[in-house]
Write a protein that binds this DNA or RNA. Structure first.
Lengths: 111, 111
DNA sequence: TTGACACGTAGGAAATCTCCTACCTATTGT
DNA sequence: ACAATAGGTAGGAGATTTCCTACGTGTCAA
């Protein structure tokens, strides 16, 4: 029961929390370690970690007087599964664009 | 300059807005069409569309007195790019797990 | 045992989000 | 021209987020 109820997208909506997950990608870290990368107070970082934990994105392991936070894969896989129909969508879009560029030599393209 | 400044993750944080993008995956739709799928008032849907637009996730095309909203691929590709290092991460996790299951026949597994 | 350390929680202020009901403009059909 | 349609905007209420400073608890080291 590691809890994975709360909204993963909402958890990832905060840049701070995305930064936290990026740090945890390199391996488990303690709260102070994580907090040292931010201007924010340590308790605020703790609160962000709580949100990530409620979304199941991280788990904590008590190790002495420290707690190691560890990234969990499942919710991220969920995001990936959510994304996949859109992936198909943009592949079609790009295929269409490429087709158009191949047959015409138009010169009125943005980007 | 279709605008893509605002935070894509924040835009996708709302279930309503994810539902809107899902609807738009099937093709461009007018605001009333979209709004008919929700309990919410039409102006509220308009506001959600504005958030999606600010994130570049949708664009609008004026067609007579209606406006067709259309899903845009780029911000979703951005999400996919953000996700890819994590994809590698969970592949490693799953590989490690499989390895472990192959060599041991342990019986003390959660989940 | 006692002080220092690591961390969570409480409570609150300020900002932001989400929804509403008016209300306004633009376009279409008659 | 006029009524109906489509949809954006204003302003505001209530909920939620995000940050802070205290403060409490558990653990280690001397």
């Amino acid at each position: 029961m590691t809890a994975g109820n709360a909204d993963v997208f909402a958890a990832l909506a905060s840049p701070v929390r995305r930064e936290l997950t990026a740090l945890l990608l390199r391996g488990p870290r303690s709260v102070n370690d994580l907090a040292s990368h931010f201007e924010m107070s340590r308790p605020s970082v703790s609160e962000h970690l709580r949100v990530l934990r409620d979304a199941g994105l991280v788990s904590e392991e008590r190790s002495g007087r420290r707690r190691l936070y560890r990234l969990e894969a499942e919710p991220l896989m969920e995001v990936s599964r959510w994304l996949s129909p859109y992936e198909r969508f943009w592949r079609d879009r790009l295929a269409g664009l490429r087709e158009l560029l191949d047959e015409e030599d138009g010169d009125d393209h943005e980007h």
